[in-house]
Simulated scan of single mutants.
Amino acid sequence: MSRTVGGGRPRDGRIDDAVLDAARELLSEVGYNGLTLTEVAARAGTSVPAIRRRWPGKAHLVHHVVFPTAVAVPPRNPTATLADEVEAIVDACAAIFSDSAMRRAILGLISDLGPQTDVKAQLTDELRDIVWPDLTERLQDAAARDGVEVSEDPTMVIEVAFGGTLAAVLLRRNERLDDAWRDSMRRTLHAVLAARV
């Protein structure tokens, strides 16, 4: 498996995967502050320069570990109802923020986003330009299929789901976001979207 970067020679995707797996394991074990690229390289069977060719620094690497686009933007279901799409958003947020690596990394990563404006831009640009428009369109399409007029900006509802899940994870510490929490969040978001004003 290889990926071509910048028009140059193909990059070995196996190294990418090994580094991401090693970083995820280490985040779960030692947290963000305890993670070093040296230890990631040793566990992944590669070198720090090889990691830096892919990710300029620790914050870049951790960002790719804890915010997988594949989870935030799953394949579309052309017959999904509004309730289905809301459920998918809540489940994706819960999956991202319930991950042990994310729990150990989130505060350290947020603290590093301030001085590292390129990482902050990368994270916010990915959410704003890829994830948010996709999810907004899904909600609008599903509402149209259901014959429901969406009463609120879907983007705001997505932000509530994202921010609410993050807040729940931070406040609940080691408690999992169980079925009862997910059901409550789904009902709340669906009621807001489908409310008649």
Rank of each mutant, 00 (worst) to 15 (best):
R3V: 10
G8Y: 05
P10K: 15
P10Y: 11
G13T: 13
D16H: 14
L20W: 03
A22L: 13
L27G: 04
L27K: 03
L27Y: 06
S28A: 14
E29M: 09
G31F: 02
G34N: 06
T38W: 03
E39L: 05
G45Y: 00
S47T: 06
V48C: 01
P49H: 06
W55H: 13
W55S: 10
G57R: 12
H60L: 15
L61V: 11
H64E: 05
V66Y: 06
P68W: 11
A70M: 13
V73C: 04
V73Y: 07
N77T: 09
T79P: 05
T81A: 10
L82K: 02
A83H: 15
D84F: 03
A88T: 12
V90Q: 02
A94C: 06
D99G: 11
M102F: 14
R104D: 05
A105C: 09
L107D: 13
G108D: 07
I110P: 10
I110L: 08
S111M: 15
S111D: 15
K120Y: 02
L123A: 05
T124I: 04
D125H: 08
R128M: 12
V131M: 12
W132C: 00
R138W: 03
L139Q: 00
D141A: 07
E149G: 14
E152Q: 09
D153L: 00
E159N: 08
A161W: 00
G163N: 07
G164H: 00
N174T: 11
L177S: 00
L177Y: 01
W181P: 10
D183P: 01
S184D: 00
M185V: 15
R186T: 05
R186H: 10
R186N: 03
R187L: 09
L189I: 06
A191C: 15
V192Q: 02
V192C: 01
V192L: 11
L193G: 03
V197K: 15
